[in-house]
């Protein structure tokens, strides 16, 4: 999206929010149309459950309706919506049974004493095209993302999946920029490792046939 387009979108959005704050319900419908997919997708990616994501989306849309007067425009409207979505998703997650935690450190790269890589690294990056969008790949990716610890997962979803800027993520999560970068880097390392197992196996099987 071009910079001017972004600017126009931002202005339209600000106008919609103002109209809605003034009591215009059509403006609310438009805001819902703009945001419901993003709200649903983020909560679905966090919880991986359609019913839960639906509950969260309902709750968030209702909160937007009821609390719009408390939005003061100190941060971007979208940041506000993302924060409400995250809070609501976390409330939901907390009410559920916790899955056993996995340590991210075990999956980070390891080095020898002189700082060189210890494991053999295969380059599978060129062979992913044929696998992309197969059900199996989708499942592997969903599972890998599901295993990410919450702190890293939310940064990864906002920055790499939703495409927010680092600055925006730091605003939504109230984190410093270095903290956002470090969590995102750890998330990517973790996921790379998880996907490597799958793609390397696929490559070696392909080599045999």
């Amino acid at each position: 999206m071009s910079f001017t387009q972004q600017k126009v979108d931002k202005e339209i959005e600000e106008a919609l929010v103002k109209d809605f704050q003034a009591g215009n319900l059509d403006a609310y419908d438009k805001i819902v149309e703009l945001y419901q997919k993003r709200i649903y997708a983020l909560s679905f990616n966090l919880m991986r459950n359609q019913m839960d994501a639906q509950d969260v989306a309902q709750e968030v849309l209702l909160t937007l309706f009821k609390k719009i007067h408390t939005f003061q425009g100190k941060s971007a409207f979208s940041s506000w919506v993302y924060r409400i979505t995250l809070n609501s998703s976390y409330m939901k997650l907390r009410s559920k049974k916790k899955e056993p935690k996995i340590s991210i450190d075990e999956l980070l790269p390891s080095f020898n004493s002189t700082g060189f890589q210890q494991e053999k690294i295969q380059d599978w990056s060129e062979n992913t095209e044929s696998l992309l969008f197969t059900n199996e790949t989708r499942e592997i990716i969903n599972k890998a993302v599901g295993l990410l610890p919450e702190k890293e997962k939310v940064v990864f979803l906002l920055r790499d999946v939703e495409g927010l800027s680092t600055e925006k993520v730091s605003e939504v999560l109230d984190l410093t920029i270095p903290a956002v970068k470090s969590r995102l880097h750890r998330a990517r390392l973790f996921l790379r490792k998880k996907l490597s197992g799958y793609f390397e196996e696929y490559n070696s099987q392909k080599g045999e046939t």
Binding site: Q36, K37, Y40, A41, F44, N45, Q50, A57, P109, Q117, K120, I121, Q122, D123, W124, S125, E126, T128, L132, F133, T137, R138, I141, N142, A144, V145, F156, L157, D160, V161, G163, R188, L189, L191, R192, L195, S196, F199
Partner: peptide, 27 residues
């Protein structure tokens, strides 16, 4: 070469995950 492989797969990981997770539509 291992670090090039690492760089390429690091980049691919982001693209693959993004493209997969972005497919979510509201049922």
């Amino acid at each position: 070469p291992p670090c090039i492989a690492f760089l390429n797969t690091y980049k691919s990981t982001t693209t693959l995950c993004r493209d997969t997770l972005n497919q979510i539509e509201i049922p």
